[in-house]
């Protein structure tokens, strides 16, 4: 699985979970789901874009 797909799956699971846990009304659940999902995926992409100019360096040693 690609890194992006894993991030999307993770964001999807958490967004559905918190929308169902924190809101009871269906419309409010959908709104919260979209806020969380877009926030997580969009935030991840934004951080990736900001980090893009920086070199990754050598891989970390396996402990």
């Amino acid at each position: 699985m690609s890194h992006f797909l894993l991030m999307v799956v993770y964001a999807l699971l958490l967004s559905v979970f918190f929308a169902a846990l924190w809101r009871r009304n269906r419309r409010e659940q959908v709104v919260l789901f979209l806020q969380l999902f877009i926030g997580m995926v969009g935030g991840g992409l934004l951080v990736a874009w900001l980090m893009y100019p920086f070199p990754s360096g050598p891989p970390a040693p396996i402990p």
Binding site: M1, V9, L13, V16, F17
Partner: peptide, 17 residues
């Protein structure tokens, strides 16, 4: 059912990885 599915899917994906 929804909560059980979400938690178990997370467990299965985590173990598969």
């Amino acid at each position: 059912a929804l909560f059980a599915a979400i938690v178990l899917v997370a467990v299965v994906i985590g173990a598969k990885l």
